[in-house]
Design a protein around this nucleic acid. Structure first.
Lengths: 226, 226
DNA sequence: AACATCAAAACTGTATGCAATTTTTCTTTA
DNA sequence: TAAAGAAAAATTGCATACAGTTTTGATGTT
């Protein structure tokens, strides 16, 4: 189970158990998953290459952390990539995919009305994933998901934090607008709306950091270590 | 020397010693570089995660190969990413970078006139690298270089093959047109020209494959294994 | 001669051991 | 008490060993 192990370690990061800056101790992970250090090391190296983890020679690997600049650059890049996916999806999605997108939006409406944050996070992933698939380009999908993966520790934290993203209406309505454009075959519009959506996410995230860092009970997101 | 080892193995692929589809035998590589299998395996896994190599459970890793569809998808994705870099670079490059770009173009003119293919390949890399830097976005640069890396085994082969890309004038003049647009601050134009340039590269590559696959003395590019 | 079957060799996946380095803890000193 | 330094503990990097799987090659059969 080599691929599974990599996923297990990634999940530790993605579900927030390990936060940016946290060390990944090989022996602890080995014990935890009941294997030796060798496969753990291989998994960590792979995650390092995909950019979720930072490998430092002779020192423990740590969950990658972004400073303010890196974060906004990452969101700019992601915005453009997602916009590209959206504009291609608007032209290329087939009927089955369009149906699936519509179903996702209905579910999302429901979930955001109930303020079910974990479910909303999950649907957010599926929404973007659907557009990645709809763009009908494997390489682009790979690139998009890698980019998304790298910033997940930050964007997921935002989604889950009560009080921020005050209600789930705004992201949902942005998604809905994008979906409408895509379903209407309006690539240009979908791309523009997607860019705005991602830019908006960055602003929320920056606000979140600005607020939490000035408080003493701040959740420890050792954001800008470097 | 862990990072060096990964680079050494990557170089085997990038300089064409290992071609798409070729197996990477851990023991041979270990002997060759005078280390044990452990660090070799770690390097291979990293290269797998960055997409240059394909990892297959219980089987030897192989240099990643693209079939026709994957190749054109990869070029489409790369075209868009490079176009984005170019359009950002047109607006963001500073004076030093612009100077460097001009110098690169002068050198390229020279090299293409002399039909020095290895030098032209090197300058091609530098040209695109300069635009990646000029876009002033580390994440985007990472994404662009990863994408470029993955298809290098194919595009480099094209560049080096005498007879294909008959003279180096065409790629050079395309680069020159892009550079002019970038230096003029014309992001839109630079992006458009870049897309055309990449699309043209794909066409040359497809032509190259079509021709070589029908001959018996074809260089063994086990292109579309899968 | 082509094909199927099986044994031998080669190779991968994982565990374990050890040296080298980093990190932590405990003294010592100002 | 705080800072500096040294010893101890923890941790990484690499080599090696071995079990299990895949690949290769040989043998026999039609």
């Amino acid at each position: 189970m080599p691929h599974t192990l990599r996923q297990k370690i990634a999940d530790l990061v993605l579900n927030g158990e390990l936060k940016p800056g946290d060390r990944l101790d090989e022996l602890s992970l080995a014990d935890r998953f009941g294997v030796s250090r060798t496969p753990i090391r291989e998994a960590i190296r792979q995650l390092g290459a995909s950019g979720l983890i930072e490998i430092r020679p002779r020192r423990s690997a740590v969950v990658r952390s972004f400073d303010r600049t890196e974060l906004s650059e990452a969101f700019e890049a992601m915005g453009e990539i997602e916009a590209l996916c959206a504009s291609l999806a608007a032209v290329r999605m087939n009927e089955a995919e369009r149906l699936k997108l519509r179903a996702l939006m209905a579910a999302s409406q429901d979930v955001s009305a109930r303020n079910d944050r974990p479910a909303a996070l999950e649907l957010d992933f599926e929404f973007h994933g659907q557009l990645h698939d709809g763009a009908r380009n494997r390489m682009l999908k790979t690139v998009a998901e890698e980019t998304r993966l790298r910033i997940t520790p930050y964007s997921a934290a935002l989604y889950m934090m009560e009080g921020y993203n005050a209600d789930l209406e705004r992201p949902h309505s942005q998604h809905a607008a994008i979906a409408d454009a895509v379903l209407a075959g309006n690539g240009e519009g979908a791309a523009r709306l997607m860019r705005e959506h991602i830019a908006q996410s960055l602003i929320s995230l920056q606000q979140f950091f600005a607020d939490t860092q000035s408080r003493s009970d701040a959740p420890k997101v050792k954001g800008d270590a470097r």
